[in-house]
Amino acid sequence: MKKEANKKIMETDLYEPIYNYLISQGYIVHSEVKNCDITAIKGKELVVIEMKLRFNVTLLMQAVQRQKAADSVYVAILKPKGGAFSKGWDDMCHLLKRLELGLITVSFNGKKPMMEIVFHPMEYKRKKNNNIRKAIIREINGRYMDYNIGGSTRRKLMTAYRENSIHIACCLEKFGQLSPKQLKELGTGEKTQSILSKNFYGWFNRVSVGKYELQESAKEALKNYHELAEHYRKQIKNIDISEFNSKA
């Protein structure tokens, strides 16, 4: 079944190549049985395939419903341009595997449609990514409060890095020029030297080897984080600067 270049592909066009493959594997195939797009039986095995041109939530819901009755359930979609390199492909495959669903793709680029079983349904064995887990926990531990709103986009988020920078800025604001060692003794943490050296926000100025001061622009920036800045100002309010003057 060769598709004309400018002819729109319909969901029903996916049926024939899938049907032909299942027949070649010895299945008895029927379509639209009890709302199932394709059913295939071999012996006591019942396979159900749900079709959509594109991967979407409706397809997932239909496929998961079919798992109540079928031994194996696949979703079949039109193969996206770029295949495994297309946007969202890895996330889609991960979700399908997590739901123990198989994936079939159909393409119409050649002389005849090509059907591919990308993977079969299989039991999902959950694996934790310890690196990502540790990174999340580090970020949580590095924040004083939750200043963000879940679901936010297109706005500056409060990260542990930004909060750490605000802490350093408040110390320099109060005490003037300080070394990374002095700042760490004030509780600014192990990343102090890196934050000062990279100066990502442009808040700090190195006045000499191992000495930093606060830029005027940072004093304005702190006004945008008033609540958090006040928290750190209170922390250092009663510290005597003379204790640090002799420390490099």
Rank of each mutant, 00 (worst) to 15 (best):
R133I: 05
M114R: 14
A160M: 03
E123C: 00
C93I: 11
Y147H: 08
K97Y: 03
G110L: 11
A169T: 02
H120R: 13
I168M: 08
E100K: 10
K125L: 00
L99E: 14
I117C: 12
T153F: 06
N164T: 05
K156G: 01
L196A: 02
G110A: 07
L186R: 07
N199I: 03
L183T: 09
G202D: 04
K125G: 01
A76V: 09
A160I: 08
H167C: 01
K79V: 00
R206M: 05
K198H: 15
I132H: 03
S107L: 13
S179N: 10
N199W: 14
G210R: 15
G176R: 12
F119W: 11
P113V: 09
E116W: 07
C171G: 11
K134N: 03
A84I: 02
K87A: 12
L99P: 08
V209A: 14
R133N: 02
G189W: 06
L172Y: 11
G110V: 01
Y147L: 15
R138G: 11
N109V: 07
R162E: 09
G142M: 04
V118Y: 05
M92T: 07
R126F: 13
W89Y: 15
I117D: 09
M122A: 15
V118D: 09
N141V: 04
L183M: 14
F108S: 10
L103H: 08
Y201C: 13
I136K: 11
L183C: 04
V106F: 04
G202P: 14
A84W: 10
K174S: 13
L178S: 08
I104S: 06
F119L: 15
V75P: 06
M145H: 13
H120N: 15
G187N: 10
G189F: 12
L99V: 08
S107I: 03
F85T: 09
M114D: 11
I132M: 06
S86W: 09
R154N: 14
T105V: 02
N199H: 02
M122C: 07
R206P: 13
T105H: 00
I166G: 04
F200P: 01
L95Q: 09
Y147F: 15
T105R: 03
T192K: 15
K184W: 07
K198L: 09
F85K: 04
Y212N: 11
G102M: 09
C93Y: 06
E116I: 07
N131T: 06
G202K: 01
C170N: 05
G83Q: 05
L196Q: 06
E123R: 12
E139Y: 02
E185N: 12
L95Y: 02
I149E: 09
G151Y: 13
F85H: 15
I140S: 02
S194N: 07
Q193F: 01
R126Q: 12
